[in-house]
Design a protein around this nucleic acid. Sequence first.
DNA 1: GACCAGGCACATC
DNA 2: GATGTGCATGGT
Length: 210
Amino acid sequence: MKRRLNLIYKKLHSRFGPQYWWPGDTPFEVMIGAILTQNTNWLNVEKAIDNLKKYKLLAPDKLYKLSHRRLALLIRPAGYYNIKAKRLKSFLKFFIKHYDGNVEKMSGIVTSSLRQQLLSVKGIGPETADSILLYALNRPIFVVDAYTKRILSRHHFIGGDAGYDKTQNLFMKNLKSGAKLFNEYHALLVELGKEFCLKNKPKCDICPLR
DNA sequence: GACCAGGCACATC
DNA sequence: GATGTGCATGGT
């Protein structure tokens, strides 16, 4: 399994090149993006983040002080705007209360504890928590998303019913642990998913992994 | 107009 | 523990 997973990485990397994720300027922006992109096309998320930037509101205290209505309106392009406004608020409350809205203050917390804390926030599930850990905080955690599961089950690495933890363990137990590799690997899987593994094309004859 | 997108919480069985 | 449902915009 180790060799197979490393081989896939090599194939993807030579096909797509380095991805340099996450598309965000600061760790805080990555955190906000991680919540906004839940079940949503990234282009729509960018529109929402651009709105926040336009009014210079992309800061923990400023966002937290906004009314629900105002925040929801600003992030409207990202879809599910009412529920995401709530989720952003609950995350911001946690982030400000425990870490003073300062990413640096998370640095002393071990990854597993931080993950538990994030998962306790309403609106943050495993993928969002792990995206924050890996892409905002540079922790060696593998992010699993819909593309990852789809690709792996389609190539029979996992069963179609494999859950989040099982899929994540496959990578974390078989790859050399490191934020850089996990970062690129997941980004490459998403790139592959976008281009070749769409739902309406269950059999993809030109998949680079074949 | 149909389908899809870098999930999650909650209700129900 | 598994399964179903609501949440919503914008691109293809």
